[in-house]
Design a binder for these strands. Structure first.
Lengths: 148, 148
DNA sequence: TTCGGGATGTTATACTATTACGGCTAAGTA
DNA sequence: TACTTAGCCGTAATAGTATAACATCCCGAA
């Protein structure tokens, strides 16, 4: 049976790094490095200093198992459905949850638009703030949305 | 004669806040709060503590005279040509300069794509990393660009 | 003139991230 | 076996970013 990409990546990391991933993945909201550091379960397995946490996070970022949410200084697990492609991170101001939305076509359009002014594009980071579907009180029929 | 939007906004702020804007605007690269705080010219006019700087920055952000570059914890002046609309911030890894590129159409597409999953969209932040045109060694004819 | 509110000053502290260094262990080699 | 070296991990110290809390001043309204 074929391993999923996530499983094969996780096979490469140490048990401690894996534990960090598990906590991020099981959290509904993004976690900061110090949230992780102060987690009793991670303390219990030997995390005592920020460096240790940051080392694990660095590895998970390189494997693209997690995203860094720049505007929150925090981390979320990558959505397992589209592990490879570019993402939009949609941050709900109300419940704090972050959705990792696939953004292949947006990325393509951005690339196309900026190529003249910025020919050496390497990384793309899109973060949205607002209110997610679950926290939106209006009925679905009358919803509207605008970006400022 | 009509004032520019920038001028009319700047008319509202205190001389000290204006001075902070001037420094950000005249800088080629994004400035952090502590870069500003440690600037001799700002010290000379009475900036002594981070709070003062952050207050000025907050006001300038609200007036949309500056952008916060989330991935750098730093601030750049808004491009004067498109003060009102959404922007893409393109950060050059080589020279450190940031281009503020208009992004009306990208914003519209993002809005359209995420409206179902994220109907309450309020803010859009797009940051790119890579190498700008000036720092790109290749000849213009053979340039290509891809977003990961 | 006194009151109250907004802007500004000041101090302390919280939060985020990195550097530097030292020890351990596992793989390769004489 | 003993040596070496490179990478991983632990630890301490410090750098960098941001906010809270409270004092003070100044000005306009009553």
């Amino acid at each position: 049976m074929p391993e999923t990409p996530k499983e094969s990546k996780l096979a490469e990391v140490s048990p401690k790094t894996r534990k960090v991933f598990d906590f991020i993945e099981s959290s509904k909201s993004p976690l900061g490095a110090y949230d992780l550091l102060n987690d009793q379960n991670l303390r219990a397995i030997g995390f005592k200093a920020p460096t240790q946490i940051y080392r694990a996070l660095k590895q998970l970022l390189e494997l693209q198992l997690i995203h860094r949410v720049e505007s929150l200084n925090a981390f979320v697990a990558c959505c397992t459905e589209h592990e490879k492609g570019p993402s939009i991170l949609a941050i709900c101001d109300s419940c704090g949850q972050v959705q990792d939305i696939p953004a292949e076509d947006i990325a393509a359009q951005v690339t196309k638009e900026v190529v003249k002014k910025f020919p050496g594009l390497k990384e793309l980071n899109i973060e949205l703030k607002g209110v997610c579907e679950e926290c939106t009180p209006e009925s679905p029929e009358v919803r509207t949305a605008t970006a400022s």
